[in-house]
Amino acid sequence: MTIDIETTGRGQFAAVRATLSEDFATQTARLQQLTAASDSAEAHNRAAMLTATRQNLDQISGALRRIADGTYGACVQCGSAIPPERLEILPHAQHCVPCKEKHHG
Results as ranks from 00 to 15, higher is better:
residue 71 T to P: 04
residue 80 S to M: 10
residue 51 T to H: 02
residue 34 L to Q: 05
residue 60 I to D: 03
residue 68 A to V: 01
residue 74 A to E: 03
residue 88 E to G: 11
residue 86 R to G: 08
residue 73 G to N: 08
residue 60 I to E: 06
residue 45 N to D: 09
residue 63 A to T: 02
residue 85 E to L: 04
residue 76 V to S: 09
residue 31 L to M: 10
residue 81 A to V: 12
residue 39 D to S: 03
residue 81 A to S: 14
residue 88 E to P: 04
residue 41 A to M: 13
residue 50 L to K: 04
residue 60 I to P: 00
residue 76 V to E: 12
residue 60 I to S: 02
residue 67 I to P: 03
residue 71 T to I: 03
residue 59 Q to N: 14
residue 81 A to K: 15
residue 34 L to D: 00
residue 80 S to T: 15
residue 49 M to I: 00
residue 86 R to H: 11
residue 37 A to F: 09
residue 52 A to H: 12
residue 87 L to S: 05
residue 82 I to W: 00
residue 84 P to F: 09
residue 59 Q to R: 04
residue 37 A to R: 09
residue 64 L to S: 07
residue 50 L to V: 09
residue 65 R to E: 13
residue 38 S to G: 14
residue 55 Q to M: 03
residue 47 A to Y: 08
residue 34 L to A: 04
residue 43 A to T: 14
residue 61 S to D: 05
residue 70 G to V: 10
residue 49 M to N: 04
residue 55 Q to R: 12
residue 67 I to M: 11
residue 62 G to I: 13
residue 66 R to F: 00
residue 61 S to M: 06
residue 34 L to M: 07
residue 47 A to G: 15
residue 85 E to C: 02
residue 66 R to N: 12
residue 62 G to V: 06
residue 45 N to V: 13
residue 43 A to C: 05
residue 34 L to H: 08
residue 49 M to A: 13
residue 69 D to K: 13
residue 53 T to F: 11
residue 47 A to H: 10
residue 35 T to D: 11
residue 86 R to V: 04
residue 56 N to K: 06
residue 60 I to C: 09
residue 40 S to R: 12
residue 82 I to M: 05
residue 38 S to M: 09
residue 47 A to T: 13
residue 58 D to R: 15
residue 56 N to A: 15
residue 61 S to A: 15
residue 81 A to C: 07
residue 79 G to F: 12
residue 84 P to T: 14
residue 88 E to K: 15
residue 48 A to Y: 12
residue 86 R to T: 13
residue 68 A to C: 02
residue 88 E to I: 05
residue 85 E to Y: 09
residue 48 A to R: 09
residue 42 E to I: 10
residue 31 L to A: 10
residue 39 D to R: 11
residue 78 C to A: 05
residue 56 N to H: 01
residue 62 G to S: 10
residue 42 E to A: 14
residue 64 L to I: 13
residue 66 R to K: 07
residue 79 G to T: 05
residue 72 Y to L: 04
residue 47 A to F: 07
residue 69 D to Y: 01
residue 82 I to H: 04
residue 87 L to D: 04
residue 65 R to I: 06
residue 38 S to I: 10
residue 89 I to F: 08
residue 49 M to W: 09
residue 83 P to K: 14
residue 73 G to I: 02
residue 69 D to N: 15
residue 46 R to I: 07
residue 81 A to Q: 14
residue 62 G to R: 01
residue 54 R to V: 02
residue 46 R to L: 01
residue 48 A to V: 12
residue 38 S to V: 11
residue 34 L to N: 01
residue 51 T to S: 15
residue 53 T to L: 11
residue 31 L to E: 06
residue 42 E to H: 11
residue 43 A to W: 01
residue 45 N to I: 07
residue 78 C to F: 12
residue 57 L to Y: 04
residue 75 C to N: 02
residue 79 G to M: 13
residue 73 G to L: 00
residue 44 H to N: 06
residue 39 D to T: 11
residue 53 T to G: 11
residue 79 G to R: 06
residue 76 V to M: 07
residue 53 T to I: 10
residue 60 I to K: 01
residue 34 L to S: 08
residue 56 N to R: 08
residue 31 L to V: 00
residue 79 G to E: 02
residue 82 I to N: 06
residue 34 L to E: 06
residue 44 H to P: 01
residue 36 A to Y: 02
residue 50 L to H: 10
residue 76 V to D: 09
residue 44 H to T: 07
residue 77 Q to E: 14
